[in-house]
Amino acid sequence: MRYKEISKKLPYWMILVVLTILFVYPFWWMVVNSLNTITDIFGDPSFLPKSWAFSNYQEIFTVQPFARHYVNTLLVATVGTLGNVFVAAMAGYSFARIRFPGRNAAFLLLLTALMMPIEVTIIPLFFQMRSFGALDTLIPLMLIPIFGSQGAFSAFMLRQFFVTVPVELEEAARIDGLNPFSIFTKIMLPIAIPVLSSVGILAFIAIWNTYLEPLVFLNSLEKYTLPLSLTNFNDTYGLPQWNLQLAATALSIVPIMVVYLIFQQKVSNAMVGSGLK
């Protein structure tokens, strides 16, 4: 009986172990070698750092304005996320609850943004941003997630949510004399908080990790965002400074990991929800 139980569970545990190695080792290796000197990285892999070079974590802030890159990324992700959520909530609410002419057509049109890869429009966007004088600023990095496919996605998710809100709530508020905007901010937004935070977290993660847009739109070192910064740890002649690059990469992952670990359930649910319809 006992033997049978173990033999039944053995493959299960083996899968767990294999998955853990596959998915945790890359991160472990990154952290270990972010604490090695460049010469120690090339030796045989070890389970713990050989040189404990904590100086790597200091040096990344001196070889380029890494702190600034961090702040830039935070700024872009925060403004982008707030804008994304707010604009999308307004649109989602209206699409769900207000009858206005052209509603279905507008909604359908917006849905086309859902599937539109930024890679298709990156060239015109580059010229467009140039004519706005927005090249080499953080503006495009904030606006595109608000209005591009990430924005359409949030609007869609929020519409789906607002459709399910009972009409009685609104009726009561209207009888209390609230104007439409107050109904939106006082009644609708508060009850939508779980959904708002879900789409917000998704937007935040997406903006935090964006690479192509900053690559094309930014020039100045002090405007870089983290993904760009990570690829910029090179020595004088363009060879990667591995130890610094790994230390910076580890640091860049931290906030996202924290967000993820705190909101694990929420992030998972949001992602699952995103796929369901």
Partner: peptide, 19 residues
Amino acid sequence: ALIMLLVFGLALGMAFSQG
């Protein structure tokens, strides 16, 4: 609404002024 717009605009403005 005005306050929200202001906050949003301010944040954008901050970014613009950087550029």
